[in-house]
């Protein structure tokens, strides 16, 4: 797994690629929590994630909990079929604010829309 961060206004975009699994998920968790602390919110780019397992989902949930605690936002975009399927299997897809593209995610972020108001609701 590889990660990189970019600043986009008040948000931090966290670009993730590769496999999020038992070995790499602690790094994702660490980066996610640090970025949430240092910004008003994180936009998580999952376009290049080939695989994510339950440990990766657990890291995302921890990020969601931290965002909630800090009253910051965590926004996801570019879910691959694999990532979407794992979130569906764990019944957590609707927990997250999910967009198709980076521009949609950033637009929603900058407009400060209520969570899930524009998120995908595909079952």
């Amino acid at each position: 797994m590889k990660m990189a961060t970019r600043q986009a206004g008040e948000a931090v975009i966290l670009d993730v690629s590769g496999d999020i699994d038992l070995q790499s998920s602690p790094d994702l968790r660490k980066a996610l929590l640090a970025s949430l602390k240092d910004s008003s919110g994180v936009v998580l780019n999952l376009i290049r994630v080939r695989y994510i397992d339950s440990s990766g989902i657990a890291s995302l949930v921890e990020g969601w909990q931290e965002a909630k605690n800090l009253q910051h936002r965590l926004v996801l975009f570019g879910l691959t079929e694999v990532a979407r399927n794992v979130l569906k299997l764990t019944h957590l897809l609707k927990l997250f604010e999910v967009y198709e593209t980076e521009s949609e995610a950033l637009s929603a972020f900058s407009r400060g829309e209520a969570r899930n108001s524009k998120s995908e609701t595909r079952p």
Partner: peptide, 18 residues
């Protein structure tokens, strides 16, 4: 139960679902 917000323990649910 599935859908409960927890930060772990998803693995056995995934096995059971698949």
């Amino acid at each position: 139960p599935l859908g409960e917000v927890r930060s772990g323990g998803f693995g056995t649910h995934i096995m059971a679902q698949v």
